[in-house]
Simulated scan of single mutants.
Amino acid sequence: MDFPLLNEVQETSELCEIHGIAKVKLKDFEPFCMECQKEKRDYMEQERVKEMFERNHRRKTIETLKLDSIVGDSKLWDADFKNYIPDNEESERALALTRKFAYEYLDREKKFNTIFSGVPGVGKSHLAMSMLKAINEHFDPYGSCLFISVNDLMRLIKDSFNNPQSKYTEMNMVRLLSKVDVLVLDDLGSESSFKRDNREAGEYIQQVLFGVLNARQRTIITTNLNSEELEAIYNPKIVSRIYKGVENHIIKFTEATKDKRSKIKF
């Protein structure tokens, strides 16, 4: 292959201070060392590769939370520990425990699930998101965290039945939810039924949840249900996996904590 510019390169009497070889001159450019230029190109290529690796690594870890989460209520993205306002002893204890559990999850060797349970509207999802944000920010090295609204997850998976190109296929979602370091399953139980006369979760829903929970050791679950209701809705194998290492990691709200959502009065 012919490079005409090479014919215009002229050797000079000036030596490179680093390599001790003669610098060359090309047209009106300042004399330069060919070896220095080669090293500079090699360094820039190495930096480009490192940047690509870092970008890819961040996408698979710290950026997973923002890019892959399925959050039913977009206001939850504003949730953090600073703007959770306890209004009684129960919610103060919940905040303290949530901070404690978040710190424990930073130790990758600790395998346990956390359950937030109790009446709706008391801030379970707020605390779970706050917990996940803190873990995601302080993981060292980077880790992957994911917040998933269970009801929205099942809707998206079902929508994918008619769209094979959807990224929300059962296979893709079970794989994603299974491999992240810490996962929040938000509002577990709401996906089963809104009817009081039939609360048992469908077989397909249970299949998906089992596929996820069976592969996991570190999951945070929020639910409006108590243990008896969970056991009535789900197969014992799923319940067993929900309870993995959950001892001393249960945050339960009662009616002592008021619904923080606005009320409409007539």
Score class of each variant (00 low, 15 high):
S117R: 04
D80W: 00
T114V: 15
K38E: 11
G72C: 09
L97F: 02
S91R: 07
G123S: 07
R58C: 02
S69A: 09
K100F: 09
R108D: 09
E90W: 04
L106C: 08
A79Y: 01
L76G: 09
F101H: 07
D68M: 09
F53H: 05
F112M: 12
E51H: 00
E90S: 00
R108E: 10
I85L: 07
T114K: 02
I115H: 03
R48N: 14
K38R: 15
H57L: 05
L127M: 08
M129R: 04
R99T: 00
L127S: 07
G72H: 00
F112P: 00
L106V: 02
E109V: 06
E47K: 13
K50A: 08
G72F: 02
D73Y: 02
M129A: 10
R93N: 14
V71M: 00
Y43Q: 14
D80L: 07
E104Y: 11
Q46S: 11
S74V: 06
R99G: 04
G121S: 10
V49Q: 14
R99F: 04
K111H: 13
A96G: 12
E47F: 02
K40V: 09
Q46H: 05
D73W: 01
L65S: 00
M44G: 08
S69T: 00
S69L: 06
F101I: 09
R41M: 14
K110I: 12
